[in-house]
Design a protein around this nucleic acid. Structure first.
Lengths: 259, 259
DNA sequence: CCTAGAGAATGACATTCGTCAACTTAGAAG
DNA sequence: CTTCTAAGTTGACGAATGTCATTCTCTAGG
């Protein structure tokens, strides 16, 4: 059964979702067709054919998650993967005594849940929206279909998984060998690299001190103390949850990063 | 160009490598043909066709590594993968100040180096023989050939990478949240699960205290102190590098493992 | 079987970090 | 805009763990 390309164009209108908030008007655009999605060029789906993108458009389900909502639950079986369209999410595991451990972040254009789908194991982490998030759900069956019929896509997914495995190794070494102070310094640099900076120079993500602590693997109080110390030394500027890195080189030195 | 199956049988003799040591005579058998290798049923190569196994046999290079020798160097580009035939190896990264961090172990039937080959990145860890090791080198090109032409094998590799990614997540959470004492207890159970026990009931691997410390992410002295404490409590029996777990339940309790 | 050198063990001490408690501040929801 | 609750901050203290020094012991290799 061949995919009818005319369908693609017939349905190629665009949803406009408008959220009103007191001070600003935010417009979020989620295209119905994946071929019009500006994320498709940066996501792992860049290797799909037009025909496959068409299938994707037909089978996907777009969802909206408010800040704090859970996209997927640790321990559950993933019925498919999410492609994050806009917004920021965190992936975290529950450790001993209910303490949350942030494993990584995912944002626009990135896939989440693929690890569970590909390994056939339950989800090893929960996924929670850090800000209002639009994400498209792609059923497991279609995902596997692409993997089995499109070697380029399959290789790209493998590349992604293996890359993350390397990153995990780095994180393991850091957690095992560096002091909390070193890790806080490193995490600040990682956050800047991951989320970039706003016009005013702040790291473009809003995390609680507890969340920063649960990236580093420490308690809230210690994270606060170290951040305050960096502030006193003039290394960072803190304005509530907004963090600006003033002396990146000093942070790299503290974090023992030389390369 | 079709692979000539008769070649397979012509070359299906077996190398016998005999190592003499004072007290015992050890015989290691490395088949020239992978089809005769008893590891092929447990390794990721189980999904290869007879024809592909034939190609494998022709292209592979069998090597022998003495205890302490390096199979692959962190930071180098992997020219292929190793399939461990016999022996035990450790994969480790160099952390700050040259401290070694053990990421995982690999032994008979397991593949190493595939992460680097599949992601196209330099090796994220060095691989060192913990005991005398026979391993077969499979060139990158052939490995990719299998991946691109055999979807089953490709999926199996993906499953493997994604499974390891999940394990890495667990390790990250443990390192970040558990105390050193808890981690030592857990590592002992992991070692037992990974390497099994000898007839006398000892964990079937010989690690230095420093190596145990570098799994846990602590210094040698602390590892020694905690092991001694476990010994005093009658939880383990220590005979040099030989470790016997006497009270596994107690270790699980200390490690805060409840499932 | 022997021996050098690495590994193991232990004590004393310094430092980091987690815990508990008290108090202040800011951000999300109405 | 207000208000209430969760988040942030700070101090005091103790436990866990790293560091340094010393001595003992085992193991690999001849």
């Amino acid at each position: 059964m061949r995919y009818d390309r005319s369908q693609l164009f017939k349905s190629a209108f665009v949803y406009l979702i408008t959220t009103q908030s007191p001070n600003k008007t935010m417009k979020e655009v989620v295209p119905v067709s994946c071929s019009l999605c500006n994320k498709s060029s940066i996501s792992s789906f860049k290797d799909l054919s037009e025909e496959e993108i068409g299938k994707l458009s037909q089978s996907k389900t777009c969802s909206f998650f408010k800040k704090g909502q859970i996209l997927m639950h640790e321990g559950a079986r993933a019925a498919g993967v999410f492609c994050i369209h806009s917004g920021k999410t965190k992936l975290y595991r529950m450790g001993t005594e209910g303490r949350e451990q942030i494993i990584r972040f995912a944002q626009g254009g990135e896939l989440v849940g693929y690890r569970s789908v590909l390994s056939g194991e339950p989800l090893s982490a929960s996924i929670e929206a850090l800000s209002d998030t639009h994400a498209c759900f792609i059923p497991k069956a279609l995902f596997f279909d692409f993997i089995q019929t499109n070697p380029k896509f399959s290789l790209e997914m493998m590349r992604l998984a293996c890359h993350e495995l390397g990153e995990a190794g780095k994180l393991i070494t850091n957690l095992a060998q560096k002091s909390v102070r070193e890790r806080v310094a490193e995490v600040l640099m990682i956050l800047k690299d991951t989320f970039g900076e706003t016009e005013e120079g702040y790291i473009d993500v809003s995390l609680t001190r507890e969340e920063i602590a649960s990236m580093v693997g420490t308690v809230t109080e210690t994270a606060i103390r170290i951040l305050s110390e960096f502030k006193e030394s003039g290394i960072v500027i803190l304005k509530g949850r907004k963090i600006q890195i003033v002396q990146p080189k000093e942070l790299l030195r503290i974090a023992q990063i030389f390369d």
